[in-house]
């Protein structure tokens, strides 16, 4: 038996950097993206924001360019990170996070619902089943964010390069793809932002320990044992605790 109050390393430094890079650049993408004027099709934020951003960047063209450049940096860094850390970080992460079967999804849905309800004191006495490294809510959110991000990246690239490379009047399909890309892009933004609100709440309010872990890379064994029982068992088997 080891000392349960000890701190153990749970994350590599580069994963931490990646997380904060990801968070920061997405915030910028959100701010610039909502500033882009998109006609009648997209009405997300009140007019003052695009007006302000247009003024700040000196026009829509610059804003679009900034948004696109940021996005391409984001895509580029991710691609490189995935290429160089596929087996040691990315693959294990995906294994832990991805919810790919309906039964797994239902299981995670149950635990997430319990988690959320218990926030408000409902079904307080129902025990939450033991969780792995990521709990049900985290897994669902993670899966959604991964898929949405892929969609965002591809639709974004088309929205930016499509009109420049293709002659839209040649084939109506080009325009249709553009339009549906925009629909998908915006829908994904909605989904991701909605999820991120919960993510941020838990990190800031409910589980400041997680925040610490995302800063230092170390986590309290007691906390793991309490919140992520299955992971704790794993760690124990591996002899890490």
């Amino acid at each position: 038996m080891s000392d349960t109050s000890q701190m153990i390393p749970v994350r590599e430094k580069k994963s931490i950097y990646m997380h904060w890079f990801n968070a920061g650049i997405r915030l910028l993408l959100l701010l610039t993206g909502f500033g882009i004027i998109s006609g009648e099709l997209v009405r997300v934020v009140p007019a003052f924001w695009p007006e302000f951003m247009q003024g700040l960047f000196g026009g829509n063209d610059n804003l679009i360019l900034t948004h696109s450049v940021l996005a391409m940096i984001w895509i580029g860094v991710f691609v490189l990170f995935i290429l160089f850390n596929f087996t040691n970080i990315v693959l294990p992460f995906l294994k832990n996070v991805l919810v790919l079967t309906p039964s797994a999804a239902i299981k995670d849905m149950k635990s997430m619902t319990l988690n959320l309800l218990q926030l408000f004191g409902i079904m307080k006495n129902v025990p939450i089943p033991p969780q792995g490294r990521y709990n049900g809510a985290q897994r669902l959110l993670g899966t959604m964010i991964i898929f949405c991000s892929i969609i965002l990246a591809f639709t974004g690239l088309y929205l930016f390069f499509g009109p420049q490379v293709l002659n839209f009047s040649e084939n109506p399909l080009y325009g249709a793809i553009f339009r549906w890309s925009l629909v998908a892009h915006i829908s994904c933004v909605f989904l991701v932002v909605t999820g991120v609100i919960a993510h941020v709440y838990f990190a800031l309010v409910e589980e400041p320990e997680c925040m610490d872990a995302m800063k230092s890379g170390h986590a309290n064994v007691e906390f793991i044992k309490h919140h992520n029982a299955l992971w704790y068992d794993e760690l124990k088997q591996e002899g890490k605790v």
Binding site: E40, L41, V42, R43, V44, A176, R179, W180, L182, V183, I186, S187, V189, F190, V193, T194, I197, A198
Partner: peptide, 22 residues
């Protein structure tokens, strides 16, 4: 465009969803 009609749903649902979540 059908997509215009889709966005007529996506826009309010997204906005309400965001607001409700917050």
């Amino acid at each position: 465009h059908l997509s215009g009609k889709v966005m007529e749903i996506v826009n309010p649902v997204g906005a309400i969803g965001l607001g409700a979540m917050l």
